[in-house]
Design a protein around this nucleic acid. Sequence first.
DNA 1: ATCATTGTACGAGAATCGTCGTAGTTTGAC
DNA 2: GTCAAACTACGACGATTCTCGTACAATGAT
Lengths: 120, 120
Amino acid sequence: MMRVTTVTNTRELAHPAREEIRLEGILHALSDPMRMRVVRALATTEDELSCSYFVLPVTKSTTTHHFRVLRESGVIQQVYRGTAKMNGLRRADLDALFPGLLDGILDAAAREAERLGDEA
Amino acid sequence: MMRVTTVTNTRELAHPAREEIRLEGILHALSDPMRMRVVRALATTEDELSCSYFVLPVTKSTTTHHFRVLRESGVIQQVYRGTAKMNGLRRADLDALFPGLLDGILDAAAREAERLGDEA
DNA sequence: ATCATTGTACGAGAATCGTCGTAGTTTGAC
DNA sequence: GTCAAACTACGACGATTCTCGTACAATGAT
């Protein structure tokens, strides 16, 4: 049993500030196929998507891990909404820091998906 | 002692064909600071640069390792010239596969270097 | 209060990675 | 042939990564 001390939401999630985001971290985060899949899906919409929206061929705890890597590298932002955890790309921050980078990588990912057999 | 059987150069190096280059591999290769340093230097010139041109804060065997990762991911091409091994970016292949990707990443790296203390 | 849903924390295991040192090969110059 | 220069191969080490399973926590509905 946990005592609620304030009105504000518990379960806050640590995000790097914009200036703390590192290119290395972004590239590393996106060099994993599962995480690239997540980011590509997030890029297709303005809405935030819950973790459970994604059906990855790994267990739930592994999925949690990948979302954390994405959040801690600054690629996505996460917020709790009820029991769900919503995810959104940090487009504004990424575009401000590295104009064109995200789109360049997403375009590259789309080309590669097309070039290889993408049955998505 | 090794017997030379043909006139052509021994010491051939295995490179992935253009179609074998994977985005994941590129992103992973560039997510390491040493390798990013090398690629940024290679991008500043049309010439090929020898491995010994680069003075990285790691040993020579580690340097060899990084160059191999770059070659096997398709980011650079390598060829022996005398005792030296020359390195060049695979610009044509990368631009054909993923237009704008390399420049986008290089630009991002330049911005980050400027943003943080770059005394290069 | 109970319960189902959603996601986490905490190991743990196998694999990969970055690094090193030592010993070796290849080449070109002497 | 000898030697120095440039780079490699191999084994090793610790650190990180990706994965899992089990147990737990927070929320909202009943």
